[in-house]
């Protein structure tokens, strides 16, 4: 396990999504990489991410969505963060965020427009996300 880098992440599976395995792997991988992870588990509401991010003073919120309703569940998330005083917090989303096989660049565009800083296609390995996190949060 790498030494703690002092950066705090709040992670969880959004909405009514119960896919519990991926988020555990992400929790393990991010922790292993030196991040301080607060894992909210499955069926996480936008309010829960925000409450946890405020109390823990998180540097990033990582939203996972596997069941295809990610777009609906993520709507208004950035606005709610701003409202709660989390202006500028790093927002990532990934998993299987939309239904079926859609052109990912279109999907990415739509999530960017919703205020997500980075949008990851299905099958993104944890390593890729970790590299982006380190870059975006200025670690090492």
């Amino acid at each position: 396990m790498q030494e703690s880098n002092g950066k705090k992440l709040v992670i969880g599976v959004i909405g009514a999504d119960v896919h519990a395995v991926g988020i555990r792997i992400l929790d393990f991988a991010f922790t292993e990489a030196g991040f301080d992870v607060t894992n909210l588990g499955v069926m996480v509401s936008q309010e829960e991410y925000i409450g946890a991010a405020i109390e823990t003073q998180a540097d990033a919120i990582i939203v996972s969505s596997l069941y295809g309703h990610g777009e609906l569940d993520c709507r208004g998330f950035r606005d709610k963060c701003d409202e709660a005083g989390l202006e500028g917090i790093l927002l990532y989303v990934g998993g299987n965020i939309v239904v079926g096989k859609q052109d990912f660049s279109e999907v990415e565009k739509r999530f960017h427009a919703m205020g997500f800083d980075r949008v990851f296609p299905p099958g993104t390995p944890p390593k890729t996300t970790i590299n982006w996190l380190k870059k975006d949060l200025g670690v090492e």
């Binding site: 705090k8 301080d36 607060t38 405020i54 109390e55 823990t56």
Partner: peptide, 9 residues
Amino acid sequence: AGGTDGGNR
């Protein structure tokens, strides 16, 4: 009270 350990101070 307020903030988790290492959190909001």
